[in-house]
Each structure stands twice: as structure tokens, then as C-alpha cells.
Design a protein around this nucleic acid. Sequence first.
RNA 1: UACCCCGUGGUGUAAUUGGCAACACAGCUGGUUUUGGUCCAGCCAUUCUAGGUUCGAGUCCUAGCGGGGUAGCCA
Length: 568
Amino acid sequence: MNAPEPSDSATPEKTPSKHFIRQAIDADLASGRFDGVATRFPPEPNGYLHIGHAKSICLNFGLAKDMGGTCNLRFDDTNPVKEDTEYVDSIQEDVRWLGFEWDNLHFASDYFDQLYDWAEKLVKDGKAYVCDLNAEETRAYRGTLTEPGKDSPHRDRTPEENLELLRAMKAGKFKDGEKTLRAKIDMASPNINLRDPVMYRIAHVPHHRTGDKWCIYPMYDWAHGQSDSLEKITFSICTLEFEHHRPLYNWYCENLGIHHPRQIEFARLNMTFTVMSKRKLLQLVKENHVTGWDDPRMPTLVGLRRRGYTPESIRAFCADIGVAKFNSTIDVIRLENSVREHLNSVAPRRMAVLDPIKLTITNWPEGKVEMMNAINNPEDESAGSREIPFSGELYIETEDFREEAPRKFFRLKKGGSVRLRSGYIVDCHDVVKDDDGNITEVLCTYDPETKSGEDTSGRKVKGTIHWVSREHAKKVTVRNYDRLFKVENPDASSDTGSFLDHLNPDSLTTLTAHVEPALAEAAVGDRVQFERLGYYVVDPDSTDGELVFNRIVPLRDTWGKIEAKGKK
RNA sequence: UACCCCGUGGUGUAAUUGGCAACACAGCUGGUUUUGGUCCAGCCAUUCUAGGUUCGAGUCCUAGCGGGGUAGCCA
């Protein structure tokens, strides 16, 4: 424990700045308040994990790793009406996929017995009481944000009476909502959490792990800190909205006289063009605005995984955005960049034509097929190369040809030249049009002296475009995903409607693409770069006969920007 | 209008804890390039405001302004 800093203090340059939680930990270690770091990631199993949880996971597991400590995975399963094992499984899978392994796996429900014993202790100490007020009355007695509350009429029951009542509650003698156990703190506290908070509510509902054993269930505050304590957590890291709960967290630990972790709050992740609340994500799924929790447009971890995001890129993103208390909104571009950056270094390059137009090479020897050598990844020599068939009939991207084009258009135009990537330079001399005047075919000659890798011509052309050989190309389905929402802040409360009004109708475009033959062997989960287009992953929907590629993220598109600017 | 938290470039995060405001991303300029990708270079800030303490304030104090959170028997 408490490993000394690596002695690289001689290189002040490299010292990464420490966020405020790291600083707090350093201080507590230095002062002797704690002698190690033990954290936990405590999800409630009532939904799928999303990118916001990834921030918390990276923080908690990352801290433990960096400080030579431990991190547990604990399910905060104190409310059986909302929770389900379906989520327990998916959460574990997601945490592992992200690249973390917990030291211990726990469930708050495993502590129900201990929690109950502690509740009796507080009752005996005169620090908790059974209250007969119903939910409405409790609310009325609690007061408001600006007015103090009033004491419950049952606040002064004797410990003996309370104990008897509590045991009767546990034994199932009362109906749902008939009684609660409350901590006896201060009904006039400016902090509403301290106005005699409910510890137990009655709910005759089976629990996904404890079955019918309990009909009283602990509230978050009464379970969370105690679970932390039992696991000897030192730093209980949570999001900002729990800040006002900290005094209560402390009160329980102090009044029980048990191990007392330090709760530290940080700002949860907000991201542009994204909704993050469980309620809204659930609504997107339930109302079929997406195909499921793992729809590639969802910010869930299962969604991002299916989209093709790598765990490395998500971890890099989380490290990149930092940790603070300021309530910020991260530009989703940052997330997209992180996966681009990772995939740029590891994804093999392949050629795919999404919107084909035929290109015929009029001076190409009839029936000749030439194998061209193509580099797999210019960023990684060890990735090697592959062979691509080149022939007299090719497909190129429709948008890469213009009959007439502006000076700045570096691609193919009538009377112009372009390099076919890993192929030859071609010169366009004519086009073929249908009756409506649409171009159906581009006619070119090729320059035999310009073969890629053995160019002896000395010719320079402005542009290079991708292509596939018409007879050798494979057809695949391509799903081009875009942002799910068309506005930066879909959460923004417009008086008129809901966040659903901001759904992007073009968030998915499905098309049939022609790809180079090497792609026929691609397996589900393989990630490639379609040259000049973007990064793609093979979707599990793929079958033997038909591959499905999801667009993970497009390449940066400088030309697109130039063109868009020109139109304004 | 009670209490708590937070205000540093377009967006985020730093600043040896009182000592020349740094880094990343975005944007804009240019360069390299057989991906208009990658890569490289340059440009882009009166630290919310007003006072105060100090030789010196992003940092400390006071007041104001702005943003967020909180009144579940949810977590």
C-alpha cells in the first residue's frame, strides 16, 4: 500500500497534473487518515451502462490501479421494483469489455442482515424511530426548501416501542407504505436530507437475489455508505447530485461508529448531441426510435461496442476529458476523435465504393486482370500489404467525378487526370449519358508508366481516389450511422415538446457497397478503414452470404468543409 | 427565493498551492503526402464583475452577477 511515487522527479516535464480527487487522496494518505486506496463502482442494476458510467468506471478502477489499491464492483440493489438480473449480467460484461477487473463482486443486498442489525442498534440508541406517517404526510411534515419541517408525531416513541414496531415491520405485519423507519436527526436542518430521512420502507415485493426474505428495503442513504464501510472503502466517489447527501453519509457512519470512508463528488459527463438519462435512453428503446440498447447510435457501452468503438479509445477519452466539479458539456467530437486516433494506427485500409459509377479504361487490354499491391496501413509497416485485382472496368465513387469542376476540385473531371489509389493514373476523355442526361459511365485511358510503386513517368496529379474492379467487387451492406440527435443539446427544455423532437431523421443510411475482394473474409467485429471514407466494423447481423458494415466514424473531411463553405 | 457546489480561450482540463496563464480538442493559415486521412508549423485569453490584502492574485478576503443541484417511502 501507499507505494511511493516513482522516482522520476528528476523529469518535472512528465509529471501529469493531478485532478482534485487525486490531490485529496494524496493529502489523506499523507496525513494518515487512510493508508491505502479502496474504491468501488456501485451501479444500480436497473439499466444499461453508458458512456457517462465509463467515466466513473475509469475513475474508480483507474485510481485503484494507479495507487496500488483495490476496486470493487458492487450492485446497489436496494429497490427490487426497478431492478433485474438482466442488467447485472450486462453491467459485468461492460466493465470487463472496458478493460477492468474488480477485486471483489458484491451486492448491497448481501448486507441486508447487517444493515438490519445496525438499524436495531440506532433504534436502541434512540437515534431512529418508526413513523406512521404516510408518504404524503411525510412530505408535508418535511417542510420545503425555504421552510423548516415539523417533528413527526411519532418521533418520541421509546426505544422499546420502536424496536417492537421495527421487528413487526420486518416480520411483515404491516402493509406497503404503512410505516417507515426514520433516522432521528433534525427536522429544521437546512439540508433536507437530514430532516429525519427514511431508512426503511415497506414493500412486499420479491427481490432478484433475496427473494421473499425481506419486505422492508433500505433506502439509498441507509445502504450505500454502510456497504462502503463494510467493504472498507476509503474513497467513495460519486457524482455531484449526492453532495447534499454527504452529511447524512457521515452521520450514519459516525453514529454507528464504523469505518468511515470519505465521499468525494465529481461532475458527471454531459456530451453534445447526446442524452444520458436512463429514463430517456429507456424511452428511445421502448418506443423503437432505436433498435435496442445496443443500437449503434446509443451512447450505451453495448451500443458503442456494436458501433465499433474500441475500449482503448473510450478509456483514452475518459482520461482526456479530466475530472472536476464544474458542470461541463464535452463536445462529442472528442469521443469521435479518440476512436479515429486509435483506429488510424491499427485499422487495415481497404477500398470500398459506396455510391458507384462505372469507369471504363478504353486502352486497357481486353480481359486483362492485373494484381496491384496495396499497403495495408501506412501508419504501421508491419501490417504488410495485399493484392487487389485491377481491370478495365472499375467502379469509382460518384462524387469523385465531375463533368465540370471548380479549380479546387482535385478529383476526376472530364479532361482531367487522377491517381487511382494503388493503381494507375487515368485521364478522362469522355462520359456516357443516358436519355435524361445523367452520366452513366466515365471513359478514361490509363498511363502504363504510372503503376503504383513503379511509376517511371514523373507525372504528378493533384488527387487520388479509391476504386474497385467491377467484376471482382463483393457486394456488402453498409450502415452509415450519424448522430442520433440533430441539435447540440437535445435535453434543452423547449416549452413545446420533448427531446424526441430533436431526433436526427438521417441518423442511419443503409446502402449497398462494392468492396475489394479481400473484405470477403472479414469476420464479425473486424474493424477496417474504407480509404477516404471512414472506419467501419463488421456487424453481428452479418451472415455467410452478406456482410454488414457499420460506420464507426467518418474520416475528417476537409474537402467537405471547403465545399460547404462555398455554398454558403 | 433556504442551503450546498461551481465560474480560467469556441470546448474541456492545468498552473510547482501567492511568482512569466500551460496542454488537448475545435477553428483559421500554411507545409508534407499515392487517403482532401495521418503528420508538421503558425495564429487564436484583460482568468465573470467590482473592491480589498500583497512587492506580486487565476489562486487569499468582501460584495455582487451568472450557472448547476436539492423538497422520492428512487439511486
